[in-house]
Amino acid sequence: MSLGTLIEKQTRLESVCLYGYKRLISYLIGSLLSQSMSLNILELMYTDFREAQDYQSLALLPSCKNLKSLKIHNCFIPPDERIMPLTSLQQLEEFDFCNEWNPLYPLIQQKFWDELFLNNANTLRKLSLWWVRSDSKDGAKIIESITKRCSKNISILHLPILFTHEILTLFDHCRQLKEFSFSGDDLDANEFLSQLGAFTPTTLRSLTIKDGHSGGWNFTEKSLYSFLSSCQAKLQIMDLTSCSCMTDRHSESQMIIAFFLK
């Protein structure tokens, strides 16, 4: 309650991070209404919304009409209709969602993602999503919804494990993409990586490829060279440090890679 009072005493509070609260989170969210005109950034991390009054308090957040960044990391949020009011936020420039810590609840229902992306299609610039993805059907409709509803203005996109056809679809729709990261699960990616450069958006400046849950992409330095040779984007960063397939032979190609990244 003292923290709620502290929030209410502010005159132009712009950013708040609520970390690790269990029960009575509704009181703190209620106090944010006093800052509804100035609040731009809200982070909810390891926060428990299982109590009815706490979950229902999420419906208050759309009153913060100038909220531009919303981050929800590893929170206990039951995936039912009570979270739908968050889709009425219409000024979001950044949405960050991570569900790696909490296996008790599945992903939020697809209706939530469709409406959130649709309502913020003109403002959303940065999208970071992460969940445990075991196969191509797990969350596939979320990725499809990105391409259909909010791809026009996305410039920064961070996603979990992607399958090759999804990467091509995202590249085809997100034509303003500047920063892109994803995980590649166990795959011989030589042929795909060799051809991927021709499909990369010319706006891209940063590309990060990481390992997935059960391994990662396997590719040779020749495939990497082919990708860079055909890539029309002026990449400034290509981060492969989290790819377990990287060897001394790849390292020997760093001078060639640096040439392409100029």
Rank of each mutant, 00 (worst) to 15 (best):
L3G: 02
G4E: 06
L6E: 14
I7K: 04
I7L: 15
E8R: 15
T11Y: 02
L13E: 04
E14C: 10
V16L: 13
C17L: 13
Y21K: 08
Y21S: 05
I25T: 15
L28C: 07
I29H: 01
S31Q: 09
S34I: 00
S34P: 01
S36Y: 06
S38T: 15
S38H: 15
L39Q: 08
N40K: 15
N40I: 05
I41Y: 12
F49K: 07
F49I: 05
R50Q: 14
R50I: 11
E51L: 09
E51R: 02
Q53R: 12
Y55E: 12
Q56V: 03
L58W: 03
A59I: 07
L60A: 14
L60R: 09
K65M: 07
N66T: 03
S69E: 11
S69Q: 13
H73L: 12
N74S: 11
N74L: 05
R82E: 10
I83C: 14
P85F: 01
L89D: 02
L89E: 01
Q90R: 07
Q90L: 00
L92V: 08
L92D: 00
L92F: 05
E94W: 04
F97D: 01
C98V: 12
N99S: 09
N99Q: 14
W101I: 06
N102I: 15
I108Y: 02
I108R: 01
Q110A: 00
F112R: 00
F112Y: 10
F117S: 01
F117P: 00
N120M: 08
R125Q: 10
W131P: 03
G139T: 06
G139A: 06
K141E: 07
I143Y: 08
K148P: 00
K148E: 11
R149C: 03
S151M: 04
N153E: 13
N153A: 03
N153I: 04
L157V: 05
H158W: 06
L159E: 05
L159V: 11
P160W: 01
F163W: 15
F163S: 05
T164Q: 15
T164N: 13
H165V: 03
E166Y: 00
L168K: 12
L168P: 02
T169G: 01
F171C: 11
D172Q: 13
H173M: 11
R175C: 06
R175Q: 15
K178I: 00
K178F: 04
F180Q: 04
F180D: 02
S181Q: 14
D186W: 08
L187D: 06
A189Y: 14
A189W: 13
A189P: 02
N190C: 08
Q195H: 10
A198N: 07
T200I: 09
T202A: 09
L204D: 06
R205K: 14
L207E: 10
T208Q: 14
T208P: 02
I209H: 02
G212F: 01
G216V: 08
W217R: 04
N218Q: 11
T220R: 03
S223R: 06
S223T: 07
F227P: 04
F227N: 01
L228H: 09
S229A: 12
Q236N: 12
I237V: 15
M238G: 03
D239P: 10
L240K: 05
T241I: 07
S242D: 15
C245Q: 05
D248Y: 06
R249T: 13
I256E: 07
I256V: 09
A258R: 14
